[in-house]
Write a protein that binds this DNA or RNA. Structure first.
Lengths: 198, 198
DNA sequence: ACTTAGCCCGAATAAGTGTTAGTTTATTTT
DNA sequence: AAAATAAACTAACACTTATTCGGGCTAAGT
């Protein structure tokens, strides 16, 4: 009988969640069936339920894991004694790094959160709204200090967040520049685009 | 018996395709059922099949309608006798305008194309690849002419395209700035971020 | 007034969905 | 080695899915 092989220090549930991330990214949450997931894990569909409660729990776990990481980093950056522009750069680099190294999870959180069910759905939407406001606050501070050109902060937030999610294309691309270069290029365009003309 | 009400100069199929766009955007292609669509149209599910061939045809129609519009505009811009930076600005403004005025279709094309089935799927992916290369070519020309700072062109393309798709958030936002302002802000950040330092 | 073509509905189909129950097999603990 | 637990299996349930078909309604054209 085929058992789920765990990495060391990892539960079988961890294996399932991780495979789910890949599958949800590839096919989308709705289109990915529990039978697909079972096959990826190497076991029958029913056996998954010895380790997880439901399909939706998988999505929930993925989404909130990622969300918490971002909120935590935001706490850290906010409290640092650096300029607004430097905060934006740090945040940008963090987003890029997450998108590069935790691709599957981050991507799924970003695209599939709509399928959360309702206590969690509105919870997530709130967290998201607050997070964006915190970014906007940094930008507005930068505008007041004349480090950042005078533009609508929510628009910047929107460009910022979505530009980073473009790294998805980079992952799929065959002849890609290396990760460090990618980061440098993105910073160059986005942070330079923010700087006040002097 | 309930009949589908058409706008003037529009077929009943047009009504269905249009409602499908809204539905696919809201719930995603897979999660949106033909019964949902039927309800939105105001008719029973079976009746839809008097006007369309299949659910997948709906997606196909939406996606390629949008894709063709973009390719057509690219043809136009490429042949104009203006600088690379100006071409990029024109292209950007077109993308923004499309995202504002044909929101549902454009959004669906961007997010749900994965669910196309295979003669069309690879066809779409090809078109997409070519389109991106054409953008990259404009940028590279701008770099050679020293209008645009020396950066990796594919990275710019990726930022560019995804930043625009952020307008999705703008649509959902309650207190939004007006469309013209939004456009101006996006151009300010993205095109300025491209300009070579002088 | 009568036909005809277009349109809609109810019912049915076959495939696929997440999930549960009951049981068997493998591993760990005593 | 025996007993207990964990984790797998098979089979099935109760639904939902897209789609088809046959019959009937309705508006337009003669």
């Amino acid at each position: 009988m085929a058992r789920i092989k765990t990495e060391k220090n990892g539960s079988r549930k961890d294996v399932i969640v991780s495979k789910a991330a890949t599958l949800f990214r590839e096919k989308g949450y709705k289109a990915a069936s529990m039978r697909d997931l079972a096959e990826a894990v190497g076991v029958e569909a029913a056996s998954l339920y010895n380790h997880i409660k439901s399909k939706s729990e998988l999505l929930h776990d993925l989404v909130f894991n990622v969300a918490n990481r971002f909120v935590l980093k935001m706490d850290e950056i906010e409290s640092e004694p650096i300029s607004s522009l430097q905060k934006m750069e740090k945040l940008l680099r963090f987003h890029i790094s997450e998108m590069i190294h935790n691709y599957e999870e981050v991507y799924v959180s970003d695209r599939e959160w709509k399928h959360l069910s309702d206590p969690y759905l509105s919870n997530f939407q709130n967290q998201r709204r607050v997070y964006r406001k915190r970014i906007a606050a940094i930008i507005e501070e930068g505008i007041r200090n004349k480090e950042i050109k005078s533009i609508d902060a929510p628009t910047v937030v929107l460009i910022f967040l979505h530009a980073v999610s473009g790294i998805e294309s980079w992952h799929r691309s065959t002849k890609k520049i290396n990760a460090a270069e990618l980061e440098q290029n993105m910073v160059a365009i986005l942070i330079d685009g923010l700087k006040a003309n002097k």
